[in-house]
Design a protein around this nucleic acid. Structure first.
Lengths: 212, 212
DNA sequence: CATCTTTTGAGAGTTACTCTCATTTTCTAG
DNA sequence: CTAGAAAATGAGAGTAACTCTCAAAAGATG
């Protein structure tokens, strides 16, 4: 929103396909085909009951190709493309607001987008994350890369190094309270409609020093 | 320390062996044999290069038995017996101190114990957690059970339900800053001697609302 | 069209993990 | 002390995720 270039990080995901060379475009399409068919099959017959071979067959590729796109079967569930968008929104917040406020604003902006793009797939992914231990494990790896982007963005905003101890502590604490909120979603203690408010409350709670 | 019963949760791990029926004692010994040989082999030749078959041979059991003791190869690295001890120490803190203070006191008490018991094994486990993605993934599962025990103990102290949203947010935030500290250890940005102080500082930082 | 690069498919091999069933080892009663 | 129940172990067969290698196909480039 603050740049004049047409390829901005907050463009809807769909809008980016057309601007790529043919080869890249095909790769992206293959990637999505794999992910879509995989999630559909997982939904229909369960995660463990679906083999990579079946996914490959449904997406009309070979098993070898599957592993070129996703290093593990779990990655199909865990991977998404929102992290860089999040980081960009954090950077775009006015410099005078606190780190926590910047994050709250970011969530207010990105959650509606996330819901609009993808709600059904999101639901499946959440359900799988809740029920399949292997997938749950991989979630952590994805938290680590979210962490990297987040501490980068926070460091930039606060004029500190991304590996400043307090920046790291802050970032992990934020990921922690987000995890807490996600978990309540997964355990059906809160609905998708209520999630944004819960996240917001947790961040505010964190900013008050978690008084108990 | 506050109870007269001889089997107290804070007894050194060694002291508990003798009080068990024969069968249990043997199981515990097998379990440790597996873990010791596995960690030694991992250290000598690497994690991926060590097969379950080799571990079983070294511990003089069959591969089938290995999986009866550890559901996955990763669990050998991740599993330890300290969580219930931690929970007990939290409960033992005087009720007037805040949750954060109780945690800081707990760490001051348990870290020396941890270091004294196990430092070499601890180092190997940390190194593996740092370098082997599969192990890193499992760490998350173990954080989940730490979370359960922690929110239980915190809930009890604060007269709230263990699934109170703020208790959950608090517990995950604490696990977050702990993760931040561990990571610095793993990345050699901090030594084992400095870790307790860093953890303490992070908890205090959390209690101040992570101002940035 | 020709060639150079990148992507794909096929197939063989390894190993973590599961299941089943027979055998051995520990616990418990009479 | 012994008989029988209960629990732990071993052996072996089977599955499926992942790896590696190499040859064929498709896309970029001049």
């Amino acid at each position: 929103m603050s740049t004049s270039s047409p390829e901005h990080a907050t463009d809807r995901l769909e809008d980016r396909l057309s601007r790529l060379p043919l080869r890249e475009r095909k790769k992206l399409r293959t990637r999505r085909a794999i992910q879509d068919h995989a999630l559909r099959l997982f939904g229909e017959q369960g995660y463990d009951e679906t083999t990579v071979e079946q996914i490959a067959a449904a997406a009309e590729i070979s098993p070898s190709t599957f592993f070129r796109y996703f290093p593990t079967k779990e990655d199909v569930v865990v991977t998404d493309e929102y992290d860089p968008i999040m980081a960009q929104i954090i950077r775009d917040q006015p410099p005078e607001v606190s780190a926590i406020e910047a994050l709250r604003a970011m969530l207010r902006e990105i959650l509606p987008q996330l819901y609009a793009d993808d709600l059904e797939a999101l639901r499946t992914r959440m359900r799988l994350t809740a029920t399949v231990p292997a997938v749950r494990g991989r979630t952590f790896e994805s938290m680590r890369s979210t962490f990297d982007l987040m501490s980068e963005a926070i460091g930039e905003r606060t004029g500190r190094a991304p590996d400043d101890p307090e920046v790291e502590a802050f970032s992990w604490a934020v990921l922690g309270v987000m995890q807490a909120a996600m978990n309540r979603l997964i355990e059906d203690k809160v609905t998708y409609e209520e999630l944004p408010a819960l996240l917001d409350h947790h961040l505010e709670f964190l900013g008050r020093g978690c008084p108990l």
